[in-house]
Design a protein around this nucleic acid. Structure first.
Lengths: 203, 203
DNA sequence: GATTTAAAGCAATGAACTTTGCTTTTGGCA
DNA sequence: TGCCAAAAGCAAAGTTCATTGCTTTAAATC
């Protein structure tokens, strides 16, 4: 709700151009990598005049951030009423989001747009990720269950996923994501056995 | 030891140029951000002819990776003979490395040099980080102690550090790094209390 | 010291990327 | 329907990046 990007004239051609540019951006990021995406290239691909792109977005970072930001308005997670299941769900969602072609690229784009927006981009991106987990935690808390802090979830679940995707570590899959959650939850009450802890060595 | 960058003519002017370019690179990364560093800019800053820079490094990614790679040949960690202390040492070192100006940028540069070298860059970078921890683990293993796997160290210590630095989460300091190690080690033998687990919420 | 030659400097060139003033289209609204 | 202004298109500059052939400097070796 805060900044609604006061777009006068949201319909018609304007919207078409916006959509075409967004699509072209996603495509190009997948094809050549976010580093090599340029505004003229996007414009060509979208069948739009470069100056239009420059006037609206200005820089590739801004464009990438815009595209990334829009993606967040997608599925709302339905909560199952079981903390472990809900966290697992969020973890898998996060992993999927990061793993898809260009996923990390968009993640990074949100993190590193122009210096001014950098802080804002960081926070927004983190919040996006956090939201899913926060919802699960709050629901559990409302049920009176003992829950880990969000911070703990970030350290124990999100950070490893992010790290493993960035470094393309093998076997970073759904099972692994759920395993991280399980391990976190098992450590909650008192102790608990470590469920067949992670495997894989870097090589 | 593997690739020693077969430099014929490592001394004199050549070395001076190399040093000047490296210094200029570090400076520029800090000042304008790694995204906006260009070879001509580096050359100007270094007082060197652009073509020299192009001929030697070719691309900014290569240059950044080279600068980053050189940084790794610094302190060798002396092992104290105590797993927790050694891992803590490595964790703090990692945190320091990431936290210094441009730290994350250089880290990324190693991870994402030009697409071809990507895989190689990934592995090398990961190995660089891993080495410190691996040494501590192996020393402990030789003493017959029970040790976590390297993989586990990556998930529980390195990943959170990396994540928190990238997102500029507050209170990501030495104490925190040591806390991660402590928590990992405490979970080792059987159970163990969680040492006043992590604090801080994203906001 | 003289020789060799790797690497730096120079300069011209081409190819993007950006920017900008102006014109044209067209969505929003009375 | 007709007005108005926002946004798109067009085109011409202006910048900056990147490449390359040639010349000059100065390490390294004998």
């Amino acid at each position: 709700m805060p900044a609604k990007s006061k777009d006068t004239r949201p319909g018609g051609r304007s919207a078409r151009v916006r959509a075409a540019v967004h699509r072209a951006t996603v495509d190009l990021v997948q094809e050549v990598g976010a580093d090599k995406v340029t505004l003229p290239a996007v414009a060509r691909r979208a069948g739009v005049n470069p100056s239009s792109v420059y006037r609206r977005w200005g820089t590739t970072s801004a464009l990438l951030a815009d595209v990334a930001a829009q993606r967040k308005d997608e599925a709302a997670p339905e909560l199952l009423g079981d903390l472990r299941a809900d966290l697992g769900h969020a973890a898998v969602w996060t992993l999927t989001d990061l793993s898809r072609p260009g996923g990390v690229a968009f993640f990074r784009a949100e993190v590193a747009p122009d210096v001014d927006d950098r802080r804002a981009g960081l926070r927004e991106c983190l919040e996006r990720v956090s939201t899913r987990f926060q919802a699960a935690l709050e629901a559990a808390a409302r049920r009176g269950e003992e829950t880990p802090s969000l911070d703990r979830v970030l350290d124990r679940v999100v950070a490893p996923l992010y790290f493993r995707v960035v470094f393309s570590l093998p076997e970073t899959d759904e099972e692994y994501a759920r395993g991280l959650v399980a391990e976190l939850c098992d450590g909650l009450p008192a102790s608990g056995q470590l469920p067949d802890s992670p495997r894989t060595t870097p090589e």
